[in-house]
Each structure stands twice: as C-alpha cells, then as structure tokens.
Amino acid sequence: MAAEKHLVVGLMSGTSVDAVDAALIETDGEGHVRPLSFAERPWTDAERALIRRAAAHALTLPRPGPDPLIAEAEHVLTLAHAEAVALLPGGDSASLIGFHGQTVAHRPPSSGHPAPFTWQIGDADLLARLTGRMVAHDFRSADVAAGGEGAPLAPGYHRALSSGLSRPMGVLNLGGVGNLTWFSDTGWGAFDTGPGNGLIDDWAARHGRGHYDADGAMAAAGRVHEALVARMAATGYFEAIGPKSLDRGDFSIAHVEGLSAEDGAATLTAFTAETIRLALARLPVRLGRLLVTGGGRRNPVLMRMMAGRCGIPVEPVEAHGWRGDAMEAEAFAWLAVRVLKGLPISWPETTGVGRPMTGGRISRP
C-alpha cells in the first residue's frame, strides 16, 4: 500500500538571518516529494538586529530558559513566520506546517559543553493558532538528549531527493554554517563543515557593504592571504571526523582584522572553500561531484574557489532541477510528516546518535 501523501508547508530561517523561507510540497515523508511553491518573507533591519542580539545573548547563558530579550525575539519571529505562510501560494491547502524556528545557541556534545543543548526559539502554539494548522516543531532536542549532535537534519531529505543520482556524490548546504551530506554506493553520512557564509556576511556588514558579499564582488577584488587561511584552519574541529556540528558563533573574523575590505573578503571566502576541502579529505570515499544549495551557491568566487581547492565538479543544485532557495524549508516540511508519522528524523550516520531517532512535537490550533 502506498504511503499517505500530505500537503505540507515547511518554514526555515537560517543563521544568515536574511529571510523566512516558506515552501509547499506534497510528500509522504519518505521517497515521494513534489515541490509546489515557494515564498520569502525578508527580515527587516530592525528584526534582523533583534534576532542577532538574542543569539549573541543566548550564547552567554548556561542553558535555555526564560529571558526577556529572547521572549521578545521569539514573538517577533513567530509573527513573521505566520506572515510567510500567508504569502505562500497554495499554502492554505496544507494541514501541517514544519516550523524549525531560529537557532540562537547550539552546544552539542562535540563542543565539549558540560551540559549539551540546542536552542531554537519560536512559539509553535501561537503559530498554530495564527494559521489554524497543526505545527511540527522542536526537531532537534530529542537527538541531543540521546547523545546526538542535533544537526544537521536536512540529510534525510537530501537522501530522498538524490536517490536516483549516481554515487559517490555530496550535497553541500552553504548558509551561515556549512553542512555536507555525502553518499557512496554503500553508505552515507553528514556533518557541519565550518562557517559557510557566516564570516563573509559579517565582514561585508562590518565594512558597510550590506548583509553579504553580493556576487562575491569584494572577494573578487581582493588578494587571498594563504597564511591566514592556514591559521584559521588549524583547529581541532577540522581534524575531527563527522558526525559533528557547530554554532555560527564558533568562528569569528578576528584573524583578518587589519586587512583591506577586499583582502579580508577574499581570505574569508578562501577559508570557507578550504573548510570544504578539509571536509572532503575526511570522507571514506572520494566524491565525484558536489551539489551546492543555500546562499553560497550564488557567490561565483566561492564556487570557483571550492572547485579549485577540492578538484571535483561543483554545481548549484538547480543543475539537477532542485530549488536551492527552498531546500531547507522543503526539508522541514518533509521532516514534519515524519514527526506526524513517528518516523526517524535523525540517524547515527548524520548526527552520531546511537540509533535512528524519532523527535519533534506537534502543536494543534
């Protein structure tokens, strides 16, 4: 008997804090996926600043808990997610929403934190009332409680999408943090690779160039300081074999302070490319190609640097008919159906948890 299919909305706001992404798909939470529509609800400058203040503050706290600044950010964030649902063409046909919320702190087992936790803010009960839909949420905490990293969670969706593609290959998501899902003929795995676009975005903002290096223009005009790239890459994180994960705040632009705006951008872009090379070097198999999703695929300088350093074809996921802007939101729509059905949403190969883990909770209107 064919698995029941659902129309479901997925929502995602990544650590780049550029927009709330909303995607509508039809899926059974297994191998059937039919993308239908996509919408973005951009963050205002004031909202973005509030969320980043909340995230910086959360990293100073020993554990998740009540806090006025966090509560303010959570309320603003939830209202924005409800607006994203309203913007989504056909979104009113869905009976279920996958609501990731906003990660404000991530202290997994690999961080060495004495009491590992992951913290995503977002009021799922309020979102359920505002939209009149069931809301699947809290996707990560059960995995961390069971000894897993709690991230990345998109790999199961990558596996569903890529089942017909030749292996070995990888899917690289470049948001504020980078994460890689790899597939061979006999196995698979996933882990966070490093800072993704996060440091480049911070550097562009520091120099008044907007929220990111548009088209890699700053990096293209600069010179890479390879000694600084090597110094930034000389940390234990890049030596460790996955599964492993990190927080966007685990790396900073301190190493390139004092460089020109252009040289700093070029060096940070090369550092991200180098972290991908190091990630591929830790795999048990050499990949034949790398498909890139997330905002980083729009940076031609970063894409060229990755291809040059890694020595394999590096392509945006659109080359295979996928929607790079929508993939993370689609992933949480797919995961929402699995939460509803009580199916695993993380695996030993992807988060290091001891067994395939169910997780998430359902809020009802």
Rank of each mutant, 00 (worst) to 15 (best):
G31H: 13
E26F: 09
R34A: 14
E26Y: 09
L11N: 00
E26A: 15
M12H: 00
P42K: 06
A22Y: 08
A23F: 11
E26S: 14
G14P: 02
R34F: 02
S16K: 03
S13Y: 00
L24W: 10
I25T: 08
G29R: 13
P35K: 08
P35L: 08
E30T: 15
G14Y: 01
A19R: 09
L36H: 07
T15C: 05
G31C: 10
P35F: 06
A22Q: 08
A22M: 08
R34M: 09
A19C: 10
A39F: 03
P35T: 09
L24E: 13
R34N: 08
T27G: 10
A19N: 03
S16R: 03
G31E: 14
T27H: 13
G29T: 11
E40F: 01
I25N: 11
L11Q: 00
E26P: 11
G29F: 10
A23R: 09
P42E: 06
D18H: 07
P35Y: 03
L11S: 00
S37E: 03
S37M: 07
I25V: 15
D18I: 07
R34L: 14
D28V: 15
P42F: 00
E30M: 12
G31L: 15
I25W: 11
D28H: 10
E26L: 15
S37W: 02
